[in-house]
Design a protein around this nucleic acid. Structure first.
Lengths: 194, 194
DNA sequence: GCGATTTAATATCGATCATTATGAAAAGAG
DNA sequence: CTCTTTTCATAATGATCGATATTAAATCGC
């Protein structure tokens, strides 16, 4: 019973996500968010809670909805193909939308005020989770003989993540998909093989 | 004539620089800045102008005072040594100070509100300047026969910058100097030679 | 010492921040 | 229709934002 909500929750969350993607957690004001969604302030509070809770929900959606190429990439047969799919998927995502380039997971809250630290930590943890999954996939590759016996999987995973994060910074600065592709090609040309 | 200033301009600028380094342009409030410097608000305004002017001065000092390893690295004899010095110098800087890790040039203003766009653009331009200088150094290396004739110097310079920016993100997240070193070693192991 | 000039300190400015109290409007239950 | 429940819209909350007006203190030339 009761009055029914006049806006779609998923659409609202996605609109908020795009604002955060563009301006970051602290750079996005509640006015920015409500205007992008087309909703009054209290409606957004009653739907998602405060700004921090809204961001965390948006981050959750980002991982499930935009970074979906990552779990898919892990199923590639070889470690090099895994990494290639991750890098190209990220480059696509980083340059796909004109008004929110780069990666929410990176510049959602890279440096911020003291108030933003919980969000900053959530992003750090989320990235660390992705790196851990990649490292485990690389270790499986080593067991399967796809990587040399002496390969340092932790270092390789960290290296791939460095390239990912660096590409996000470059994309945010306006670098083209083609430029990112040349970077990816060089990265892949260095990948160790059995 | 007139009353003499009771604080040192260089010390004040350096203190402000460190606050920006830690919290970014918009994450650092004027209260943060004046408290770190130990000065009242109007003194800071009369000394440097508004917050944007203060940040740009701090950025200028950052390039001249903390990124001084970059121009020095360019004088190394081979392109691989140039890149090695740049990467290790950046890794040192990114992990040297406990309370302001990473790189001001990256997370000074990666994503921000509309008001921060001039600063954001200044950082993008500054990074592009560094990349251009590196590219020109690599082109010189190609002419000198230090790099293969078919080397894509623009792509190589972009790649090095991606690693630099990615390391800054990782360092901000708390990664150790040792982890960065393993990333650097992998990066260098892939460097093309004549 | 006197007057001109610069800086220091207190106190405050309007604007914007995230957040919410309040009451009207809408929809189902009885 | 009436009652209860939920959402909607208007408006306002205290706090903090960057930026200053104002006045007192200090330092110079004279």
């Amino acid at each position: 019973m009761g009055r029914q909500r006049e806006f779609d929750l998923d659409e609202a969350l996605d609109a908020a996500l795009c604002v955060f993607w563009s301006k970051g957690y602290e750079g996005a004001s509640y006015t920015d968010l409500t205007q992008a969604i087309g909703v009054e302030r209290p409606a957004l509070y009653s739907a998602f809670g405060n700004k921090e809770a809204l961001f965390l929900r948006a981050l959750e959606r980002y991982y499930g909805h935009y970074l979906d190429f990552f779990p898919a990439a892990l199923e590639q047969p070889t470690s090099k193909e895994v990494v290639a799919h991750i890098l190209r998927g990220a480059a696509d995502l980083n340059t796909r939308y004109q008004d929110h380039k780069g990666c929410l997971g990176i510049h959602g809250a890279l440096a911020c005020s003291d108030d933003g630290e919980p969000v900053q930590r959530a992003l750090v943890d989320a990235r660390a989770g992705g790196e851990k999954i990649l490292r485990e996939r690389l270790e499986r590759a080593k067991e399967e003989g796809d990587l040399p016996k002496d390969a340092d999987c932790a270092a390789l995973a960290a290296f791939v993540c460095v390239v990912l994060h660096g590409m996000a910074v470059q994309a945010k600065a306006g670098f083209s998909r083609d430029t990112l592709e040349s970077i990816i090609n060089h990265t892949l040309s260095t990948w160790p093989s059995k």
